[in-house]
Design a protein around this nucleic acid. Structure first.
Lengths: 235, 235
DNA sequence: CAACTCACCTTGTATATACAAGATAATTAT
DNA sequence: ATAATTATCTTGTATATACAAGGTGAGTTG
């Protein structure tokens, strides 16, 4: 079978939405109507509707019917990719410089972000990620030592901290915020910025089932780095 | 039935992943094994595996089996929400000031971004979105007149441009980029910035089935606005 | 020994059937 | 006329069954 029946029905529905024939909240044919129309079983028609619902394109409610989802409910998304992969994808040379690997005493804001006691010791690393030997991003990371005992013994030239941590303590959740900031003196030196320029700062906290694993601050010059996103009606 | 069987099986699989018992690329039980283990039909076991696969948590391949997806393939996502909704969600007062509503002749970069001829006329609007009467974001938008003829006649106090456009020309695709920039003189005035400060700039292009609908530039002061994101292993 | 065939596992597609449960409209009883 | 019931539509869950098609390994054949 070249193209499965359930896929044909999905395409039929998507085409009606794309053409504008079925606007937001328009009622789409029921499972029974589709199964008669396309001469398939109800389960096959159901599969088409279910998959489009999972994709956020339709909404269903028991007893009422199936409807075209309102665009508002479709969130516009931005992806945060692994920086090493991103550089390599542009077929440029990736390298990194490890500036700091230490165990420090956690001041209040860091202790709170990591969910540990104030003044308990935590690991801290500062790494500069380079694209063709030019600094692209500074990664300052604080790590909960209870969940990654041998963090300071790692060689992060071969494996990024994020890769190491996600292998060690399976990730269950992550939160991000993105801001525009002005870098301080130290950050300017790390990034080789002679003239002050605005930077994009991503703060990322990651959880595993045992608690907060790490807290990272990723800073990139506004002129060299941007985040990209993409939203589409799935085909 | 309190909790459906397929959901119980999903939870069983997720729990094994969350606990770390099943690492990346670990092989999960086959449909037949699960159906024996849980005393359900193969179709029910299959549903659990299929839904987790659609969610990006598992990967399957015919003839081989089903495996825990590698974490790398799970993208970390940031949401861009409707600014009016966001302000109202903080239970603050939303208002907007319409600065410009005009028809202009498209210079090259704008014409290219909109996919129209250079020097053809396009619509332009500049709107300031306020939170409690303080400027929060400037929205400069260029609109393809072929796809939104009466754009200039709209009253954007009641309906945001984005809402109007997505009702008028059904949206099929959107692309974003996020950058950190330094605002120019004009932008500082619009945002009421006395001291220069870095700003977050989102560029958004939206498509409908008939072509590129609009091209928007959203600028917010770094001190007042940030983007938030959230990633989790779906329950 | 190498190459081929075949059995057996896996996932993928499709159907027919059954009953549960939510929503609505028509009917019936009060 | 209003309230309660019923019929009928919808989606949701679950099973048994059938065949297709991809991948692996064991055994057979040359």
């Amino acid at each position: 079978m070249s193209v499965p029946k359930f896929a044909q029905i999905k395409e039929f529905i998507l085409e009606n939405i794309r053409s504008g024939a079925w606007q937001e909240n328009h009622r789409v044919p029921s499972e029974n109507e589709l199964s008669n129309q396309f001469k398939v079983s109800r389960m096959t028609a159901r599969r088409a509707l279910s998959e489009l619902t999972d994709a956020g394109i339709l909404t269903r409610s028991q007893g009422l019917g199936t409807f075209v989802a309102s665009f508002k409910s479709q969130s516009s998304l931005l992806e945060i990719k692994n920086i090493a992969d991103e550089v390599k994808a542009r077929s440029n040379h990736y390298s990194c410089t490890i500036l700091v690997m230490e165990s420090i005493s956690a001041i209040a804001p860091i202790a709170i972000a990591l969910g540990v006691e104030v003044d308990s010791h935590v690991y801290r690393s500062v790494i500069v990620h380079n694209e063709n030997e030019q600094p692209l991003q500074v990664e300052e990371r604080f790590v909960n030592p209870a969940l990654a005992k041998d963090y300071l013994q790692q060689d992060f030239h071969s494996l990024t901290p994020h890769e190491y941590l996600s292998q060690n303590a399976p990730l269950t959740e992550a939160r991000h915020t993105v801001e525009a900031i002005m870098p301080n003196q130290e950050m300017c030196e790390w990034l080789n910025l002679y003239n002050e320029e605005p930077c994009l700062q991503v703060i990322r906290r990651t959880w595993s089932s045992q608690g907060i694993v790490s807290f990272a601050r990723l800073v990139s010059p506004g002129s060299k780095y941007r985040l990209g996103g993409h939203l589409t009606f799935k085909k």
